[in-house]
Every structure is written in C-alpha cells, then in structure tokens.
Simulated assay, not measured.
Amino acid sequence: MTDITVRALGDEEWQVYRDVRLAALKESPDAFAASASHEEGFDDDLWQARIKRSRRLVAEDGERVVGVVSVGRVGEESEKVSELFGLWVNPELRGKGVAWKLVDAGVRQARDDNYNFVLYWVGTDNGRAVAFASSYGFRPTDGRRPMQSSDDDEDEMAMVYPLGDDPGAVPSSVL
C-alpha cells in the first residue's frame, strides 16, 4: 500500500468532493442520513455551495481518493465547537489507519480554525466506532439524539475532544 496522505479540498475541487461523497453514500447507505439517489440529483451550483460550508478533507492513495471527512461549526450559536461528520473510508482500506489519519487531520484543522472542542456523533450500538473514537481521545458525553440514518430506535452519542488547556471541559451548549 502506498502512503496515505490527507489534504483539505479547495473550493474549486467540488467535483472531487461530490464524487467521493456519492461513492460513500452508495457503498455505505446505512451510515448516512442522506441517500445517493437523492444527492445524485443535486446540480453543480449546490455542490459548489456545499463545499464552501465546511472543510472537506480527503485521504488519497496516490491519485485515488480513498476516504473523506468533513469539519464544520456546530450550529450558528456555537462559535467554539467544531464537528467531524461524514467520515468514510473505502472498504478495502478499513482497519489500516486511514480513518485515524482523517480524524487526526480534522482535529488539527479544528485547532487551526481556533475551535475549543471537536464533537463527533457515534451510534451507541456501534461498539467499533465508539472504541475508535475513544482510542483517539474523544470522550463520551450524556448528549444523545435519534440516529438520523436509521428507522430503528437507535441513538447517537455525542463524543467530545477538547482542544484547549482543560482536558476535562465539556461544552454544555452542544449537548
């Protein structure tokens, strides 16, 4: 395997984001609140606007995009909390450190953008995802919400990663 690199996409690379986003939705339809069939209907203007709303980071194996994560602000009311979302890795590279590199780059981006916390929502029944986030340093919180991608009664848990000097601080405004 070639060395995996992670980089932020520029606004002019909206087609790269579109292509990896649609690949993720097709490959892992239950992992996202959206569907490939819905997003395939988006026009170019919407994709161009969408890439500007959040930082879009891609993992690349040579010239091939093999993963993606987005980093953005949590709501309009919270200027101090960033959120990681839309994490996806090509199945052939899962378990090989690509997700770690994407999350690490997302956390560094949030720090560079002067956020104090990074929020990451994880399915409470997804032990592997909870373990992964915990091993990186995200801590579980009492924050829960219904899982957006599931018709079941599953919940997501807010996990938080503090970027400031107080590793015990948890932002109450997002929970």
Rank of each mutant, 00 (worst) to 15 (best):
D142R: 14
M147P: 12
D43L: 05
E27M: 07
G143M: 12
V118K: 04
V16Y: 07
F42E: 03
S35V: 05
A105D: 07
E76S: 09
G137V: 13
V58Y: 03
V118I: 12
V16P: 06
T2W: 09
E77F: 09
F117G: 07
E154K: 10
G97S: 00
R108W: 09
D30W: 02
V174C: 06
T141D: 13
L46S: 08
R128S: 15
A8T: 10
D125Q: 15
S173M: 05
G62V: 01
L175K: 03
S82H: 01
Y136K: 14
L84D: 01
A49T: 07
W121M: 14
D152G: 14
P167Q: 04
G137N: 15
F132N: 13
S54G: 10
L87Y: 00
P29K: 02
R139C: 14
I4D: 08
P162K: 05
D43C: 10
A105R: 05
A131K: 15
I51F: 04
V89K: 00
A8Q: 12
A33C: 10
T5L: 06
E40N: 10
A31L: 06
S28I: 02
E60F: 04
G168D: 11
V174Q: 03
R21K: 08
D152L: 13
F132I: 13
P140N: 13
A99W: 01
